[in-house]
Amino acid sequence: MRLYRLALAALIMLFASTALAADYYVDITNRTGYTIMYMYVSPAKSKSWEEDVLGNDVMRNGTTQRVNLRGYNSPIFDIRLKDEDGDTYTFWKVDVSRQDITVTLDDLD
């Protein structure tokens, strides 16, 4: 009986930890007048930026890009965009479950 309880407890902990992970997305609209070359989205608690989510693509002015964020424990992310001139636009602690981003020149770092 004790072995059964231990196995059940382990199973509950496994499901509880995976239940915390969720999928999110954020729509980012470029209204800077410039082409966005790089887009980095990292969990707010991260100490470094994750890989460029645009890859080989770019984000032209006036377009919107959806970024899918799968398997994270929190909807709070930091977002950094870098345009064709090397200028950056950084958004700290964005709750992507409640907010999308429209980036303009007013957001220039």
Rank of each mutant, 00 (worst) to 15 (best):
I76M: 09
E50W: 04
S97Q: 08
A16L: 14
Y89T: 08
R66E: 00
A19V: 05
L14R: 05
T29Q: 08
Y40E: 04
D27M: 07
Q65A: 02
L20V: 15
G55Y: 02
A19Q: 09
M13K: 08
T102K: 11
S17A: 13
A21I: 09
D106P: 03
I79L: 08
R2A: 09
S42F: 06
L69Q: 01
Y34M: 07
I79Y: 03
D85Y: 15
I79P: 06
I76C: 06
M39W: 04
S46G: 03
V103Y: 06
Y38N: 12
G33T: 07
T64E: 01
L6Y: 10
N68Q: 01
D87F: 13
I76K: 08
R31P: 02
N61K: 01
L69H: 00
T88N: 12
Y72W: 07
R66L: 00
N30T: 02
T90Q: 15
T35W: 05
F77A: 06
I76W: 08
G62M: 01
Y89R: 08
D23Q: 05
T102Q: 12
R60C: 00
D52F: 06
S97Y: 08
R2V: 06
A7S: 10
M1C: 02
A9H: 11
D87W: 12
L54W: 03
T29K: 10
G71Y: 01
D95R: 11
A7V: 11
S74Y: 03
R31S: 14
T90Y: 14
P43L: 10
Y4E: 11
I101D: 07
D23H: 09
I36S: 04
L69K: 01
M59W: 00
V41K: 03
K45N: 11
T104C: 09
L81C: 11
Q65R: 01
K82A: 10
T64L: 00
V58D: 04
D95C: 08
N30C: 02
S74I: 07
N73H: 02
D107V: 12
A9Q: 13
I76H: 04
D95T: 08
T64F: 00
D106F: 13
N68H: 00
V103Q: 05
I36E: 03
